[in-house]
Every structure is written in C-alpha cells, then in structure tokens.
Amino acid sequence: MPNEAWLTPELIRHLEVLQLSVRWVRSGHTLGGRFPINRRGSSVEFADYTPYCAGDDFRAIDWNLYARLDRLYIKTYKEEIALSVELLIDATASMGVPDLEKFKRCRQIAICLAYVALAEGHRARLSWIQAGRILSSPWFSQRRDLSQMVMISGTVHPQDKLFLPEWLRRAAIALRIRGGQAILLTDGLIRPAEFFEALHVLMIRNMEIKVIQVLSPQELHPARFFRSTTVVDAETGLRHQLAYSPQELEQAMASHNEHLARFCKRNGILFVQHRLDESLESLMTRTLPAHGFLE
C-alpha cells in the first residue's frame, strides 16, 4: 500500500463497524448481494404468488393451487442483490484552492466510504469530476481492493473547470450509472442551478444521492481573510475588486450554502457540510452517522 499515514489501523477498525445507510434498494443492482427484493428470482426463499402470463416459466406454476382454484398462478421468490456505490469526487480547479488539503480530504472521505461499502459486501467505484474524458476506477468489491483504490486515487489532481450537469450526463452514459447509491464529494462552489440540475441527472437514474460539501474555514468565513482587495476566481480567472462589508461577505457565503442544503433536504438528499478543521475520524465516526449517512 502506498504511504498513506492517515489510513491507520485504528481508523480501519472504526470503518469496519460502520455500514452505509440505505433508504431503499432499487433495480439496477447486481446479484449476489445481501439485499433481498421481491423478484422472480432463483433463490429458495418464497416471496409471493402472481398470475401466470404468457411467457412465464410454466415450471413455476403451482399445480396444487390450480387444482383448488382452477386458475394458474406461479410462485415468485426473493432475490438478493448487491448495492452499487458511486463515489463522485469533485476534481475541478476550485478543489485546489486555497490548498490541496480540500481535495485530499475528499479523496480520504471517498476511500473511507468505499471501504465501508466493501466491508459490507457492496461494490464501490470512484469517479473524478474533471474536464476531459471520464475518469473512473473499476468496480471494487472486496476489502483487499483498498490498496488499489488508494493507489489509483492518488494519481488524480484537481484542474480546470467544467459544467457539472453535462459531465454527469456523459458519465451516466459512459459508466452506465443506474440504480444504487451516489455520494457526491464537492465544495459546492458552483451556481446552485448547475448543482440542482446535476443532482436531477442522478435522480432520474434512480440513484439514492448523498452530498458531502467540503470547505475550508477560510471559505466559510471569507471576511476574516480578505475584504477590500482584488479576488481572482480560480476556475474562471475573473478578477473583482471586493468592496463589501464583512457582514455582506459572510452572509453571501452562508446564503449560498444554505441554498444548496435546502434543495437537498427538499428532495430527500442527505447533505453534510464538512469543515477541514474537523478531523477525518470525527467525520466518519460522529458527523456522518449523526446525519444518517452511516449506521
């Protein structure tokens, strides 16, 4: 395993006992998991009766029931499926500002959540939201895939700017995203409309969506660090001479974040804001369970 000092045995022990919260299991998952669904599956657990239709396997017809009711019914059985967890990591240029710590923390959170999923028997995949071709890892389904996951994720660096809804549309096609759980790790510093549109793309793909917004303290309280100065947008390169009161700056940032959170809540999307001055272990063991991300 590459030198990852943050991935301590103690942290892994904590991750072992956690599990992802799942509100509902939807189609599109692979078989062989631990989630049973009512489906004309091939397991031994009886689920229900359903009227026979043309084309059904007549071996599933319950002849005893036909003898009593003179109507054809077939037996259905429970099918156990595995949860697919898509971890979408924002790798645009804004994630490298003010320093790479924000992007690194996103990567660490993604790896931790992926490990939780693997430990639970699900499968997980990391994808990086970045301009250019769709960058994604293969599906990981076993714990031993952790080292490979760490190695692959270490090669990506934040760069450029993109239009998030468009990227998700392309990724959904390219990565065949359908069903399962999507966890978006981002700083949320995009226009709210883009953010909502991007989440809609995932929702119509039958995904259970969770959002973790990672921000530095400087971004949360900009008035403490700059007021009357020229600021440069890291993604667009636009310059602007700020001339606002500290209260206005603080209020603008808070309003933006509140806007995102309110949208998520309204659409049943779990939303957590993570400050970089909070430790990773605290996030994984306290904050995320408290917000229903983990159980």
Binding site: S94, M95, V97, P98, D187, L189, I190, R191, E219, P222, F225, F226, S228, T229, T230, V231, V232, D233, A234, E235, T236, L238, R239, H240, Q241, L242, A243, Y244, E248, L249, A252, M253, S255, H256, N257
Partner: peptide, 23 residues
Amino acid sequence: ATRKEFLIASLVPFEHLLPRPPQ
C-alpha cells in the same frame, strides 16, 4: 492592499454582490 490579489475557489457565492461598484 490595493494591489494584492487573493485567489479564491469561486466567485459564485458573491455573484449577487459583484454588480456593486467598488467603493
């Protein structure tokens, strides 16, 4: 102070403030 430039992640949160001319 007038010549200093701060690189920030995004101007998006402050977009509604930008139209105001610098004082």
